[in-house]
Write a protein that binds this DNA or RNA. Structure first.
Lengths: 346, 346
DNA sequence: ACTGGATGTGCAAACGATTGCACGTTCGCG
DNA sequence: CGCGAACGTGCAATCGTTTGCACATCCAGT
């Protein structure tokens, strides 16, 4: 079907040398061991015949596919596209291609897709969908596959990871809320089987302690997914509990959006009645009203960083000391969804 | 580095048969030519040794990589993730992986990435970023590569394409606006080197003619990109022209968002002063206020359809008659950004 | 002039699978 | 009982590269 491509053999025939000589002449590293005129002749022929190396054959011989796998929960979640572009921006110029797979946060799916990627002989893996304890990925790393995790980390392993400064983000947000006079602050926590959810909850607790704010345990409710529906459900629970609160610090933006919707349904205005904050500053968030106060994380840079570390990992002589942990700075984005606590509720 | 995987040879050694026998026993199509007991023995060994076929070797031998390339302008544009999930939903279960590349609508980049994909020996290509006249992709198709284009089509070629019913969408939107009393309707057209931009403008013209609405040529302004900034610029031009209008029908949602911003800047309210409509109904649009009246296209289904056609193309005996054109239905979404024309402006 | 080390090129074996062909059994049928 | 077809398995080539090794050739040093 495909018009057949020219191979080393074709060039060898055209120039009257052996295919191994052609191979060497075309390889910058080996080129020096070949007479310059021969190299020139071969390069000319390669050019003329429009030679393009067969990556499949290369891969079979060298066991390097120049391909990396990227595992994410779901590409339709808008925080991932910028991350992918970040990854691509460092890997693509070096000749790597990436295969992106969506786990939908399902363990079965994740395991199967991991198999698929390994079957395809990826040289490395960027994993942005690991669970806190994730045997399959730990095993892959054990087997010698280069792995970096992104946004999340797998505990008790030496897999390098790139995360955001969750502590700082939560802490600044809490400070922001207290500065506005809030004391009864609810936390809409993320899934506890994900390190982001867990870290942000822990950060919330410790920051509250440091600032000596009493946290009513009933005001901490845990979502089982990071989405609007769960944000809505948790907020309903919060309201139903009867415990009073003037602000809700949410573990991510989507929970916050769901939260605001339910407040509105119940006749509560954000921010004049209740302040709500998010986390991530996801793309297109600027469309929402009120504009959400949130913590911006560096999505594109996270991709760049993870890819760079993966590169070092793949090329390391094992002597290379790769940083196990990279924490990216975050930034508080004060917008309209948080405001001073209403006088009557103080 | 990688712990080495078990190969056919290992199984052959373990079971005392020849590697070719192992190959056949493991291939459902060839299996019937082997004694059942032998098959059983081989399968058991394969199981025990955790055999996983090497796709690279398979690819080299058979010239099928079970990989498809997906070319899009930019993954951070939210209409693409659902499309990708649609594609994945049909291809992944069949063992295909996809390599996604972003062209940023740059011709150079597109050409280079196309090369990359061909070098990697993709079995087929779904291209959602073609230009109206796109020699490089036409050439690829000519060379025998299976190609389907999505959302756009390349003219004067027999490359199958999947598009939306732009005509119907524009027509219904226009009808909707006229029903609200609008007569002086501006069109914010998309880039004319993209088939969507061109088709929607043509649809606008012909629909207006059919409905006998006079279109002031000065009220048609053309964006050079499909983004908010261009929507803003064009709207400024529109206002500066001094020609009066009560509604702006935009060629896509992002143009509409930019348009509404500029109207607001100029003290004009949408929809009470001027109605604005979009196209695509992109994800997260529901966050915007006013909620944008737009035309919903079937993003996920478009991915499914394109992938299905690609499959037929890749497996066709060439006798198979593949539909050249597939037009997906669209749906008018009436929301808050369009309203009756103000009495004083009638 | 002879030895010895460069230096450049060719040879052939990998990598792990698929597949046309040949070979040796076994079985059915006349 | 014998012949040929059918059946099951093995052999070896092949896909396009890379790469360790052998083998010439040449030149310098003694």
């Amino acid at each position: 079907m495909q018009k057949k491509r020219t191979t080393l053999k074709d060039i060898a025939r055209a120039t009257g040398v052996h295919v191994s000589t052609v191979s060497r002449a075309l390889d910058p590293a080996e080129r020096k061991s070949i007479t310059p005129e021969v190299v020139a002749k071969i390069q000319a022929a390669a050019e003329r015949l429009d030679y393009r190396p067969n990556r499949i054959a290369f891969g079979l011989r060298t066991n390097r596919t120049m391909t990396v796998g990227v595992v994410i929960p779901d590409i339709t979640n808008p925080i991932f596209p910028p991350i992918l572009r970040g990854i691509e921006s460092v890997l693509e110029p070096l000749g790597y291609a990436s295969i992106i797979v969506n786990t939908d946060s399902e363990r079965e799916r994740e395991i199967r897709l991991l198999e698929v990627l390994r079957d395809r002989g990826v040289d490395g893996l960027i994993h942005a969908a690991v669970l806190r304890s994730d045997p399959s990925i730990a095993k892959a790393a054990q087997d010698g596959l280069s792995v970096v995790t992104l946004n999340r980390r797998v505990e008790r392993s030496n897999i390098p990871y790139v995360i955001n400064d969750e502590d700082m983000g939560i802490c600044e947000m809490l400070r922001h809320l207290t500065k506005l006079g809030h004391r009864r602050i609810a936390h809409l926590a993320g899934p506890q089987d994900l390190s982001t959810g867990q870290l942000r909850l822990a950060a919330f607790r410790s920051a509250a302690e440091r600032m000596s704010i009493d946290i009513d345990p009933e005001l901490i409710v845990t979502a089982i997914r990071f989405d609007e529906a769960e944000g809505a459900r948790c907020t309903r629970d919060l309201l139903a509990s009867g415990h009073d609160f003037t602000a809700v610090l949410c573990a991510n933006d989507r929970l916050a959006l769901g939260c605001i919707d339910v407040l509105r349904e119940n006749g509560l205005d954000c921010p004049s009645d209740i302040s709500v904050s998010g986390f991530n500053d996801m793309p297109f968030l600027h469309l929402a009203r009120p504009r959400l106060t949130t913590v911006r994380i560096q999505q594109y840079d996270a991709g760049i960083t993870a890819a760079s570390i993966l590169l070092r990992l793949m090329n390391s002589g094992a002597d290379d000391d790769i940083p196990l942990e990279t924490v990216l700075p975050v930034e508080l984005m004060e917008r309209d969804s948080t405001g001073p606590v209403a006088a009557r509720r103080r």
